[in-house]
Amino acid sequence: MPAAPLIRKLEQFDRISDAERRLLEQAVVRQRAAAKGEDLAREGDRPSESLFLITGFAARYNLVRTGKRQITALHVPGDFVDLHSFLVKRMDHGVMAVTACTVGVVPHEALRVISETQPHLTRLLGVNIAVDAAIHRHWIVTIGRQSALEHAASLLCELFLRLQAVGLTEGHSFKLPLTQAELGDCLGLSTVHVNRVVQELRAEGVIVWRGETVIIEDWPRLQQIAEFDPTFLCLESEPR
């Protein structure tokens, strides 16, 4: 059932009726695979479909003239990577598959029909876009006003809770298939600096990072380092 991760994500925000569930299932017209490193959307594109992740990780990014890349958001299964393209039309950023991905395809026409006939479902899709914006705000605060150590700790807290919400954690461990260079592009840091902060978190006994697996050894301490407040993730289900 390709719509299942999307339904699970929207259920984080509020209960979904059986009729709404069926509409979401019908809205996903197909699924497709994307290779690691493939662009799911490019800056300047005018997509006629929005994509959500069924499996894998994706990243929104922008390139600057020197060729440097800033990743502005990471996406995990259940996330739309470009729901806003339904409204803004032209992409102001690219989206790349960080790992091999499977994506579900929702035509903008299906989103238009939902927006004209399903007020509650439309509000939930609105919450989805609002939470994307809240995560961007959180990244701006951490990138601008926290130390690299705090910022890295914050990103790990955020990803742990987001993955936990979609059932992709085991205890306090989760898969994080990012290279140090990609992590640097998320944090706006050189790989030299990323290595230093990751080593510090390890040396302090806060995390273990082996291959693609992160184990949070000291969750309270990680949140304390990051000054982490999960409000922005909107993880409580309530009437909306």
Binding site: A148, L189, V192, H193
Partner: peptide, 11 residues
Amino acid sequence: AACGAAEIGRD
């Protein structure tokens, strides 16, 4: 190396 040193220095 210079970027790394400058960034770590800033922190």
